[in-house]
Amino acid sequence: MGNDLVLRVVGKLLIPFILMFALYVQFHGDFGPGGGFQAGVIFAAGIVFYALIFGLENARKVMPDWLVETMLAAGVLLYAGVGVAGLLLGGNFLDYFVLAHDPVHGQHRGIFWVEVGVAITVCGVMLKIFYMFASRGLAEDQK
């Protein structure tokens, strides 16, 4: 599939926009449709698209395995960390009102970091699943 000229050109053109759109969905999630779950999935879909066109090895150079596996755990830790931060600042677990001087501002900050955590984990899991299936397939072909 990697030798098709049309696919390569269209892919090169579209992939930056897919990744940009993921970030837009992530950071604009407060005001329009979107949020961590969607952003993670769209970002992962962009990378999967890249892997399908340019080959798995090239995608692995962009998003190496250790990075994906770290993302898997880092997102959950970030989410729980926001909860613990609320705990340390004198509130309840996952209580965002204490994260800033102004309660509403604290809510914004809490929601922002929680969404980032969600996006990181979802993106990591989707990419890891894809890598797992795809690398199995490659190994099968070589046998």
């Binding site: 949020g35 779950f37 993670g40 999935v41 979802v122 899991v125 989707m126 699943i129 797992m132 299936f133 199995r136």
Partner: peptide, 20 residues
């Protein structure tokens, strides 16, 4: 449902892994 969809695809992938 938003969370259910993402959890659903993760568990679907787990089932596929078992099938493989």
């Amino acid at each position: 449902i938003l969370t259910a969809i993402v959890v659903g695809v993760a568990t679907l992938a787990l089932g596929l892994a078992l099938a493989v």
